[in-house]
Design a protein around this nucleic acid. Structure first.
Lengths: 147, 147
DNA sequence: ATAATAAAAGATAGTCATATCTTTTATTAT
DNA sequence: ATAATAAAAGATATGACTATCTTTTATTAT
């Protein structure tokens, strides 16, 4: 459901929230290394997140990425919107062009329950919520599917 | 969530259930034309469905595709399994390799509700269920996103 | 048997998400 | 000012899904 890029983004952000701060920024290389991600691809994603104010960055020596206080409160759905877009949450499950309460597809009402449920879930969890559930940080950071 | 191929498959099957029978089979050309789908691509999908006994086919003159009685009772999840696979319903929402009741990801329990809900939805609806909800067949057949 | 029909199978092309590398720009410390 | 650092930007490559075309095989009607 979430693209690989989006999951890379979420992992990176959680990693930053957990480990970085304005006074100790973390660079692309370090992030990619710790999360075992392709360096340049990760750079692209971080760049996109920075441009959309999801995370912060500083260039030059001692530069890198970090999250300011506001960013830590960002909801997961905002990250999803930037990376994947919200099509999943707005489009008909059966691909109907016009599917609505007035002209529902055969699965409309059933499908809507779960689609809206996921929307609400991602809209109610912040980066900090994820961080707070990490009991041993490493398991969350290291345990990802590579393929 | 469902791939384009999978939606093409579902539309084709519903169209067949609605319009075809052993005594009046429908060929690829006709199906593609009526549903406004790419002919050869649709052929490939129907072929895949036939191979997996989701639909039936007969070659030669007066041949084409149709659904036998058993096929009409097929659940949507079976079509999804053949075309897209069940990864969506079995994998961790955050891409964790090992995510389970014992080692849950930060979203595991919340996410599971909706993932399982969708699984159950697709497992409880048959082709005939979709057909029976078509009040005016054309709207369902014609109203699909092309892109 | 033969010709016509239509699905099955194989080969090829396009597109988009994923991934990588190189060059440029901005910042900081010296 | 200068050199070092690190993100930003641009160009390119890869793979999977989507799409199309051609050839082969099977069936039916004559």
């Amino acid at each position: 459901m979430l693209s690989k890029s989006c999951i890379y983004a979420l992992r990176s952000i959680v990693f930053l929230a957990y480990n970085a701060s304005f006074d100790s920024k973390i660079g692309i290389k370090k992030i990619a290394e710790e999360l075992d991600l392709p360096t340049h691809y990760t750079g692209k994603i971080l760049q996109q997140l920075t441009k959309n104010k999801i995370i912060q960055s500083v260039k030059g020596p001692n530069g890198g990425f970090y999250l300011n206080e506001k960013s830590q409160e960002i909801e997961l759905i905002e990250v999803i919107e930037v990376i994947d877009g919200l099509e999943f949450f707005t489009n008909c499950g059966l691909g109907l062009k016009e599917c609505s309460e007035e002209h529902p597809c055969p699965l409309h009402y059933d499908f809507k329950i779960y689609r809206d449920g996921l929307w609400n879930l991602f809209s109610s969890k912040s980066i900090l919520d994820l961080v707070s559930k990490i009991e041993d940080g490493d398991a969350f950071i290291k345990n990802f599917e590579k393929k």
